[in-house]
Nucleic acid binder design. Sequence first.
DNA 1: CTGAAAGCGCTTACAG
DNA 2: CTGAAAGCGCTTACAG
Lengths: 377, 377
Amino acid sequence: MMTFWQLTNAAGVYRIIYANDCTISERSNEQGNKMTVTIFDVAKEANVSASTVSRVLNNKSTISENTVRRVYEAAERLGYEPNILAQSFRKQETRTILILTPNMTNPYYSNILSGISDTTRSLFYSSFICKTDWNREEMSNILGMMKKRHAEGAILLACEMGEEDWLLRYAKDNPIILCSEFNPDTSIPHISIDNYKATVEAIKYLISLGHTKIGTISSVNNYLSTQLRLKGYKDALAAAGIEFHPEYIEYASKDYSYRSGCASARKLLSLEDRPTALFCISDVLAIGAINTAAEMGIKVPEDLSVIGFDDVEQTAMFSPKLTTVAQPCYELGKKSAELLITALNQSEDVPLETVLPYQLILRESTGSPVIIKEESI
Amino acid sequence: MMTFWQLTNAAGVYRIIYANDCTISERSNEQGNKMTVTIFDVAKEANVSASTVSRVLNNKSTISENTVRRVYEAAERLGYEPNILAQSFRKQETRTILILTPNMTNPYYSNILSGISDTTRSLFYSSFICKTDWNREEMSNILGMMKKRHAEGAILLACEMGEEDWLLRYAKDNPIILCSEFNPDTSIPHISIDNYKATVEAIKYLISLGHTKIGTISSVNNYLSTQLRLKGYKDALAAAGIEFHPEYIEYASKDYSYRSGCASARKLLSLEDRPTALFCISDVLAIGAINTAAEMGIKVPEDLSVIGFDDVEQTAMFSPKLTTVAQPCYELGKKSAELLITALNQSEDVPLETVLPYQLILRESTGSPVIIKEESI
DNA sequence: CTGAAAGCGCTTACAG
DNA sequence: CTGAAAGCGCTTACAG
């Protein structure tokens, strides 16, 4: 049994995939070598020209029903499989995209990668995942593969602000999508959640619980999300008329390491008038804060509320369960891939900005502050 | 400035990579379209034939020094970049390998993937990571890409026992490497640590600490490693003359889920004469055991010693720090890729079995059992 | 040490 | 609706 798969998109059918899942008749020459069945063999068998076979298999132009049938039958009889290498060469297209990620093991990235990978495959594209370690030279090398025709487009995860200028050099020749992080002034299409709004909602929630002494663990990195979350934190406090305390802000390492989360938390919790709630810009940082609090004898959520960010599944192993802002990682990846492939297939422009929904998930690490009776003189 | 990179392996130079990192002279025709610089253009510029240019750029046969220089200079002057699509087509090679993984987000896998990915890239191969969800049909589809000339070989992570027969159908046409898991009777090259020895060492360590009531959290899956670890557990006990208690074995879910680790631990720790030590065949299971013990008021390591397996970095966030058998995940990936590419490049056979060193890492989750005075009549 | 020529397997104007 | 022909850019026997 032979099956033909058709993939359609807005622009119409653009590729026929030809799958052969049973025994195929393999022809051999006298030496017993396998001979490749080409489009010419099929043409001869079907009594048509190679051009016609090509057209039938690619759904190009209208062809008489009779011919179509004959070609399909001949192809099946011969066990023809199109030579992808020849097709790529002829069309000068690789159907390959580049994925640049700082690393592959961080669950936030790996979930995005998973979404990208599944999506590209379902659209018959290959994705080539490359680890950059935030190294700009490495990124340049990788993107240079597009010029060398190894790939046709790229998705960049975790692009720091300020990477804009040199990136444009590549973006003008090949479509590029920025996933999660981007420069607000960029002309390169990007996709993310609304980090500002998400943070405001998280802080408002803490305020609604009765907290007024709210600290944050931010990061020294140069991501837009970090900036936006810091601004959301400040704005939400201001909107509620809560005085801003600069000492309530600590900055963790650029990669949100657990260690640095612990260190930041320790500083904040050692403050004379320590916060009763902590907004952390990543789950790992939040876990660090919770563990540090425990070490210091501060109970979560009784003495301290903690909110994380991302909702990576690995936090399910912790108790108390983390209240956090969930990012749709898999969907961020999926959508990035779809946008890129759209850009690749039609000259039609892709939207500059795509915003996916976040969700504030309330679990066990937050609660109302214990009201300590103020002693008056 | 133009640079040529040479990659050498045991078989000698096998590819020249040609990198151009500065402004290149781009020629245009009257319409201003970019014209591709081909090997013929370089040939004309250097006053040699295209064959010679090809030979120079591929280091084939001996060529007069003078010619070599002229060709390089011409190539540089013209900003020539070899057309990879044409090369692939001509040689009918994709330089692409398939990686089949149950999922991409589990840190054990993602670390292996990272090793594979870095290595293939450094050897100028592409790796195409595909998620299988343990679905055999999906695996077949993916491996089918080799026949369709999309890829030349494959690395399979987490191949369950019994997958052998249908796999051979693919392994006879294209090299395949099994990483971490395999069938002991397989004829397909594989790489792993010595799971049996590692387990024996771990159990011996527990015994040396004074434990005699040692339980294990195994899994219902069908991996060789699971079998070997169970056998190692039993054998080590037997070797020490410790009686085997069937009720000291529990089986977690096939994917080592945290939840199932908790459930298994609860059963073991609810036993009348409960174990004082638990050997868990994955770190996540071990974390589940530790957390469950805590919930039950059982202290680790005072009342219960716990050993994990894998040493994925994510466990660094837990206290007490986990004693565990470390697997060299990144190296397993790296070595798998090297083996596969070796198999691809030389007909020379690759070793059937490659064993990488493990390491028992002693941290805080293990200790001597508290000796409870036996009450005599 | 080097060149002329064939050919990898397909797609696509062009012509009818 | 269909065919003959050219050509994508390279590599590699073959011949000298």
